[in-house]
């Protein structure tokens, strides 16, 4: 619920999850464009890359949770 960008006085307030989703989306699109030559292949690659970014990010976050504080 706190995943949206809130631009307040030129400063973006972004949750950790929101920042990760934004990063994953933009980097996945760029990598798909770089590595795939067809539209179908690019869409498939972007979806896979985005899903793996999010899954690995959440997984690493859970692994690091016991040592976070």
């Amino acid at each position: 619920m706190n995943c949206c960008l809130l631009v307040i006085a030129g400063v973006v307030r972004l949750s950790h999850l929101g920042a990760m989703l934004l990063f994953a989306l933009l980097v996945s699109l760029a990598l798909a464009c770089l590595t795939q030559r067809t539209r179908a292949g690019g869409v498939k690659y972007a979806l896979w890359s985005f899903a793996l970014f999010v899954l690995v990010g959440v997984g690493v976050a859970w692994l690091m949770y016991p040592i976070s504080r």
């Binding site: 960008l5 030129g10 400063v11 973006v12 972004l14 920042a19 934004l22 980097v27 760029a30 464009c33």
Partner: peptide, 20 residues
């Protein structure tokens, strides 16, 4: 590709600036 790279790179860098 030009549009996609412009918005992907631009989105990342402007978001980075706005996040200070």
């Amino acid at each position: 590709r030009a549009l996609l790279f412009f918005f992907a790179v631009g989105g990342l860098v402007v978001s980075g600036y706005l996040l200070r």
